[in-house]
Design a protein around this nucleic acid. Structure first.
Length: 576
RNA sequence: GGCAGCGUAGCUCAGUGGUAGAGCAGGGGAAUCAUAAUCCCUUGGUCGGGGGUUCAAAUCCCUCCGCUGCUACCA
């Protein structure tokens, strides 16, 4: 595989540390980033795929407190769980880091100093709610009280869940701490740093406009909405303990004891994670070449995220990067792929109310590839999509078990029964094969383009169509008929069938890596990265050595039964 | 309330000005190598309602209805 000039830097939105993620989080960022990273590697591009846990903020502090744990220990434990779940799903990160690790802390402080020096930060005094009972400042959502609009008694300080109105904690009637329930709260002045985002609007708008064509409408429309509504300066520090400390040399130490807002430091971990990767792999300063300096010019930086993350990646983080100029010219995102949500039987997946299927539980009931295929085939690209057990089972059974799995099985078994389990050397390709090759040249080209365009749903529809093409061919070639009268003709068909199996393993690898490997190994050993077929189909489909012994894989995809669906529906909820 | 997206066959979705599409499900047939798996043919939609622009509208404009999301201190 030739090395190519372009390098791909790929990040998925950082999963928050607070618990194993559900399928919605998986399909919106982690999984498409992995599929795309595998696709890039398969094509021979140098690729760096990074992800990390996003650990800071009051939510983690309070979750740890509730669990009676030290915050760091709590995060250590949660990090291990998320890492294991990601590994289980075959998420092939080059590094899975942590926003609380040293590189991110140093980089976050470094960026803040640059922004301060460049005049992009203001010191402002704000009114914050302080709880005497809890001995801490409360973020808006941790103040509860009666909604002044609808009278709901458990409204949160940021928004009333009942009438959905946006609130300010001072509006609440009978306000109290959501942590202790204590009404002993007061308003105190607190000094914070504000990032002067408003001065970046023209620059941001020009940048977003320049991506009119290569970003999804979802992304540009959300980004523009923020600019059109009048971008406000954003407070980037908080009165909590668990975070990156604000250095004393900013604003003469006025921010002593405060930390940066989690949304300020989390995106910087994309860079910090590259440094963690370099440190873990003895790469020295190589991480910088992905992010800054002349060598980074060859890098295409791709970000994957759910729509809730889009403002922070089209406005917040870009302002941080732009504000570090002209001294330092860090990369801005080139390709930003945003996703809608996947619903669970018509309702939301919810971490807090444990609704839906979570990554660890998903792997307990089925291998990762079932999920990977289904989720990518139904990726919520144009609108929210909906998960039901019945739809899931129907699609997996049909596409993976019947169309792909059975094809591999029928070809390899027939070869074993009639051609001694060896690639037949008799016969030559004729018109039938020529037509097949022509069609596959077209389809594989289309499939490649769809992946390049990150049109995952359509790409998987094309992949399925390619599998179907194999079945169609086999029906027309009918080696089971010809073997009785014309062994050469049957041999050529079986040889083509085996070459198709081989092709399918290569094409499917980014999506279903484990199964693709099993399929490939039935034919011959598979390399770690199964390369993309760049050659013309006429060559690829006559590539297997004549006479080479092949095997029959064990059942590749066992079908999901009605009983299983009933069990899972009882366990997880969700209709069908 | 404001803003955005969506509403197309029973289901999941393509299609953004030129005779309504795919997969699944349903119906009929072929084949019997195979995880009863495959292949071929086929039923099915006044493209949410109404109005307008146009030779021509699922597609553009207006309006109404419905669903979803976002609304900056959850991340």
């Amino acid at each position: 595989m030739p090395k190519r000039m372009t390098r791909y830097l790929i990040t998925s939105a950082l999963p928050y540390i607070n618990g194993v993620k559900h399928l919605g989080n998986l399909v919106g960022s982690l999984l498409p980033a992995d599929v795309f990273a595998r696709f890039c590697r398969a094509r021979g591009f140098e690729t760096l795929a990074l992800c990390a846990t996003d650990e800071h903020g009051s939510t983690t502090e309070l979750a740890a407190a509730e669990a009676g744990r030290d915050v760091r220990a709590f995060c250590d434990e949660q990090y291990a769980l998320q890492k294991a779940a990601g590994d289980g799903f075959g998420l092939s990160w080059d590094h899975f880091g942590r926003s609380s690790n040293a590189p991110n802390i140093a980089l976050t402080q470094h960026f803040a100093r640059l922004l301060w020096r460049n005049g992009h930060l203001d010191v402002r005094t704000t009114k914050q709610v302080y709880s005497n009972a809890d001995k801490r400042f409360l973020s808006d959502r941790y103040v509860v009280g009666t909604c002044p609009h609808c009278g709901y008694e458990r409204a949160r300080g940021d928004q009333c869940e009942n009438c959905t109105r946006v609130l300010d904690p001072v509006d609440l009637i009978n306000p109290r701490s959501a942590i202790s329930g204590s009404p002993d709260i007061e308003i105190r002045d607190s000094t914070h740093l504000f990032l002067k985002q408003s001065t970046f609007v023209p620059q941001l708008r020009a940048w977003i406009d320049s991506h009119e064509r290569d970003w999804p409408v979802l992304v540009t429309s959300i980004a523009r909405k923020w600019l059109d509504e009048g971008l406000q300066d954003r407070g980037i520090t908080r009165d909590v303990e668990w975070g990156v400390p604000v250095p004393d040399d900013i604003a003469d130490g006025q921010l002593k004891g405060k930390v940066f807002y989690v949304w300020f430091d989390a995106p910087i971990e994309y860079i910090g994670c590259a440094q963690e990767w370099a440190e873990a792999n003895g790469k020295g300063d190589a991480w910088r070449d992905w992010w800054i300096g002349p060598k980074s010019k060859d890098v295409v930086y791709c970000e994957f995220m759910g729509k809730d993350n889009i403002p922070f990646h089209t406005v917040g983080f870009p302002v941080t990067v732009m504000g570090a100029r002209p001294q330092e010219d860090w990369k801005l995102v080139d390709r930003l792929k945003g996703f809608n949500y996947i619903n669970f039987d018509g309702g939301k997946f919810s971490t807090s109310s444990k609704r839906g299927v979570f990554m660890d539980a998903a792997l307990e009931i089925l291998p990762a590839d079932y999920w990977r295929y289904y989720l990518m085939a139904n990726a919520p690209e144009s609108s929210d999509s909906n998960f039901t057990w019945e739809h899931f089972a129907g699609q997996v059974n049909k596409d993976l078990a019947d169309v792909l799995g059975n094809f591999v099985n029928r070809v390899t078994k027939f070869c074993g029964a009639r051609f001694e389990g060896k690639v037949p050397s008799e016969g030559e390709y004729g018109d039938e094969e020529k037509a097949l090759i022509e069609e596959l040249d077209k389809r594989v080209g289309e499939y490649t383009q769809l992946f390049e365009a990150m049109e995952f749903r359509k790409a998987l529809a094309e992949l399925r169509a390619i599998f179907v093409t194999g079945n169609e061919y086999l029906t027309r070639a009918a080696p089971w008929t010809h073997v009785k009268t014309d062994r050469a003709r049957a041999g050529a068909a079986v040889r083509m069938g085996l070459n198709l199996v081989h092709l399918f393993a290569h094409l499917a690898w980014p999506v279903i890596p484990t199964s693709a490997r099993r399929i490939h190994q039935a034919i011959q050993d598979a390399p770690e990265v199964i390369p993309w077929p760049d050659e013309a189909m006429g060559d690829f489909l006559d590539d297997l050595e004549y006479g080479m012994a092949i095997g029959v894989p064990e059942v590749l995809f066992a079908k999901i039964t009605d009983e299983q669906i009933a069990d899972w529906r009882a366990r997880f909820g969700g209709g069908g």
